[in-house]
């Protein structure tokens, strides 16, 4: 078990993490792990019983997990979305913008490095669900909900 870097106030769940296929059939799982090829939208029908979705990155170069996290957040999921696997400090910022709020990489991350990474970008161009108001709204005094 490597270090967990978490940006939430609630206590992490200790429930067993079900694999995607079993979770879809099994009605009581509260934590699930999805792989790059799994369709995050399949989770939408039972989002309210989930407290944790782990998104695995077998290799950092496979970016499907970024879409998965955004889809969950766009559907209103407010449980934990945890990036696991090959997660490097240089990817943290974008992951957080896409809705990840916990990280458990294969190689442990330094908290200070992570904090520095999050401070890299003073502002952002795009609207996501992370609550940051994009530059093009700031320019026109508008707000992104």
């Amino acid at each position: 078990m490597t270090d967990l870097l978490r940006f939430r106030d609630d206590t992490p769940t200790t429930d067993p993490v079900a694999a995607f296929e079993t979770c879809c059939d099994q009605s009581n799982a509260t934590a699930v792990r999805i792989e790059p090829g799994d369709d995050a939208r399949a989770l939408l029908t039972f989002l309210d019983r989930l407290t944790l979705v782990e998104v695995n990155f077998p290799v950092y170069g496979d970016g499907r997990g970024y879409s998965a996290a955004r889809i969950l957040r766009e559907a209103g999921f407010d449980g934990e979305i945890r990036a696991v696997g090959d997660v490097l400090v240089d990817q943290l910022n974008n992951m957080r913008r896409c809705g990840f709020d916990a990280f458990q990489p294969n190689a442990p991350l330094d908290r200070a490095d992570a904090d520095a990474a999050f401070k890299t970008w003073p502002e952002v161009y795009q609207a996501t669900t992370d609550g940051r108001n994009p530059i093009w709204n700031i320019r026109h005094g508008a707000n992104h909900e």
């Binding site: 950092y60 970024y66 879409s67 990817q91 974008n94 896409c98 970008w121 795009q126």
Partner: peptide, 13 residues
Amino acid sequence: RQWSSFHPEFMYL
């Protein structure tokens, strides 16, 4: 250009 610069979801297409 602005939209695509540092797009958080599409850096590992």
